[in-house]
Amino acid sequence: MKKLFTVLLMLMLAIALVACGASDEETTVKPDSEPTDDSGEESAEASEDLPDELIMGFVPSQDSDKIADTVAPLADRLSEELGIPVTGQVMTNYTALVEAMGNDRVHIGFIPAFGYVLATERYDNVEAILKSVRHGSSTYRAQYTVRADSGIESIEDLEGKVWAFPDNVSTSGYLFPAAQLMDDYGVDAVEDFFSDMIQAGSHDNALIMVLEGDADVSTTFEDARTAIEGDYPEAMDELVQLDFTADIPNDTISANTNLPASFIEDIRAAFLAFNDDEEMLTIMDEVYNWTGIDEASDEDYDVVRSTYEKFKDDGTISLD
């Protein structure tokens, strides 16, 4: 009996040791079977946040079909750099581009300074990440252009004339010239100063209207005559620079902030790398006369915001 008890005791101990061994093994294996970090999960989530196609929005500074053809190689290169299909889309005007960005239909917008200010006032998902450089400067001026044989010699002589401008939300085409007329020349309302005001749809068209006698003066970026010289070689002689406005911060490359922050940084880096790529710089020059790309911040455009305050409540400028 005593011997049987001993055998039973040893058997129970053996069973207990096996159970403990099995328990210890499960505790050790379990952590190894789980991910030790969540980087893969985060990467998957970021990928899910990306659109199937990245849309770049442009406004017409020249013929829309010409811009579309010109930006195609830019879109192709960005697609290679970012690993996602990229398409350039030419909008009808600044307002259409701003609305498309605000409603997530455009992810990268080439937005002039004033259009950017309007975009940030109306939407919270638009942010300037870069700005253009033209001939070594990140600022520019608006230019008043008249025919050389017009007899117009000063801005005061423009009273009662026909004004052609690209769009009423164009920084150089409308906002800064209108503000200068009000501040420096005592003009209460620009629509009363001119006999007629024509939205031409682009800087090129505004100049061509003056060249062909359909308007007396146009306001554009400086010097937009070079953009039409190929088709109108007489432009440099028959159109003259009457005057200029104060400095304006250059156009933005703005991002839709509903994109992942890390992807926006990839976009910023890809564009900045174009400063060392002659092919891409040539494309930027052909589209908007850009000769380089620089960092930008929202605060760079506060001077435009302060100018906008002159028109904010008079109903002449809106995105509606």
Rank of each mutant, 00 (worst) to 15 (best):
M1E: 09
V7H: 09
A19H: 01
A19P: 03
C20Q: 15
A22I: 14
P35E: 07
T36R: 15
D38V: 09
D38Q: 13
E41L: 13
E41D: 12
E45Q: 12
A46D: 15
S47P: 06
E48W: 09
P51H: 02
E53Q: 09
L54R: 01
M56Y: 04
F58M: 00
V59Q: 01
Q62L: 02
D63L: 06
D65G: 05
D69W: 05
A75Y: 07
E80T: 10
E81Q: 13
P85K: 02
M91A: 14
M91H: 15
M91Q: 14
T92Q: 15
N93M: 13
E99P: 10
H107T: 10
G115Q: 03
Y116H: 11
V117N: 10
V117H: 00
V117I: 14
E121V: 08
E121Y: 06
R122N: 11
Y123T: 13
R134Q: 10
R134N: 05
H135I: 02
S137Y: 02
A142V: 04
Q143A: 11
Y144W: 09
A148H: 00
I152D: 04
E153V: 01
I155V: 11
D157H: 07
L158F: 03
G160Q: 05
F165W: 00
N168W: 03
T171C: 10
Y174I: 02
Y174M: 05
Q180E: 07
Y185D: 02
A189H: 14
A189V: 11
F194E: 09
D196K: 07
H203V: 08
H203M: 11
A206T: 12
L211Q: 05
D231Q: 13
L242W: 04
I248L: 05
I248C: 10
I253V: 12
A261V: 00
E265H: 07
R268L: 06
L272S: 00
E279W: 04
M280S: 06
M284L: 14
N289Y: 08
T291W: 06
D294N: 14
A296S: 11
A296I: 08
S297T: 15
D298L: 09
D300V: 05
K310T: 15
K312T: 05
D313M: 11
D314F: 05
D314Y: 07
I317N: 04
S318Y: 06
L319K: 03
